[in-house]
């Protein structure tokens, strides 16, 4: 049998690269978040380990790895053990279809955006499993809230993505980027509205302020991951930041032209756009208070979803008029 060793090796290398990026990027984002929040709050943030606390993330990782893994006595063991994987694995998998540049993409699936959307929505299972398995009332409330929230915001999120798909005429991530060579999609008013809806829904998807209701510290202590410690907690933590990267990367690809930019290398443009969006989300997080559960749900169903639906309709009408 002729085994394609080279292809296998390259696949393996790509997998390792993705995992390494997953971890390093999350650590960098944690450091960035701490620095940005410190700047907003008139503090310095981490300053001791390394220049400007740059090595703080390594110290934190070592600390998290060495922490004791505490299992609650009455926990539903299997569900409790599986939950962090259900959150982390889909997040890693979503990186497969992120186009960092013309060449840098692990798998340019012809249904790329569909793949990303569907696999990241698996996370809600993990979150609910964590809430259920911990046998903690705060965790349970957090898990329930999270499930309700993510399922609700999936609808306007996908509808806003649909607008881009209609404009681009393809589901492939690279195809969507190429479709923007004449001009970024966010320059069209209907797609700009979709961008807005996408950003709001995506913020809710990754449980960030003002939609951090599942984790609501002042109400639910820490929500679904209250009982987790050590490496299990860090998987939630890393996945949270990886998710942040993914929603920003999808936003950059779909609305801001992805890796397109005047000068090479294009990966540079891509990262600039992604980290710009991430910084914006962080700025929001450290400024706004949290909305209430019912306010958030009614906003999703009564405002965002109808708006997104009308937007899809208008886009279809515009495209039909053109074609």
């Amino acid at each position: 049998m002729n085994i394609p060793w080279l292809a296998l090796l390259s696949l393996l290398l790509k997998g390792v690269a993705i995992l390494a990026f997953f971890a390093v990027n999350a650590m960098f984002l944690i450091w960035l978040e701490r620095k940005i929040s410190a700047k907003i709050q008139n503090r310095l943030g981490p300053m001791v380990v390394g220049p400007h606390g740059a090595l703080q993330l390594i110290a934190d990782t070592v600390k998290l790895l060495l922490k004791e893994n505490i299992v609650p006595a009455e926990a539903d063991r299997l569900i409790w053990w599986l939950a962090p994987f259900f959150v982390a694995v889909p997040t890693v998998a979503a990186f497969l279809c992120i186009p960092f540049s013309q060449e840098w993409i692990v798998a340019d699936l012809n249904v790329g955006i569909l793949f990303i959307c569907s696999i990241t929505s698996l996370c809600v299972l993990g979150v609910f499993m964590a809430g259920w398995g911990s046998n903690n009332k705060y965790s349970l409330l957090g898990g329930m809230r999270s499930a309700a929230q993510i399922v609700s915001y999936e609808v306007p999120l996908l509808l806003s993505v649909l607008v881009v798909i209609m404009e681009a005429g393809t589901l492939s991530m690279q195809g969507i980027v190429h479709a923007q060579e004449l001009g970024w999609f966010c320059l069209k008013p209907n797609v700009l509205l979709a961008f807005l809806i996408y950003m709001i829904s995506a913020t809710a998807e990754v449980n960030r302020v003002p939609f951090d209701i599942p984790e609501a510290e002042s109400e639910l202590v820490s929500g679904y991951h209250t009982e987790y410690s050590g490496m299990k907690f860090s998987m939630f933590f890393l996945a949270e930041y990886a998710n942040l990267f993914i929603i920003s990367a999808v936003a950059a690809t779909l609305f801001l032209g992805g890796w397109l930019g005047p000068l090479r290398p294009s990966v540079f443009w891509f990262l600039i756009k992604v980290y710009g969006i991430i910084s914006f989300l962080m700025w929001i997080r450290w400024t706004l208070p949290r909305v209430r559960m019912d306010q958030m749900m009614s906003f999703a169903w009564k405002v965002l979803t109808p708006l997104a639906l009308i937007n899809v309709l208008v886009t279809g009408w515009l495209l039909a008029g053109k074609g």
Binding site: S37, P210, D212, W286
Partner: peptide
Amino acid sequence: FAQDLGAYATPLFYALR
């Protein structure tokens, strides 16, 4: 109070400052 409403520490830090 702002902290209880979920404004992550920023108003509290202003107040403490």
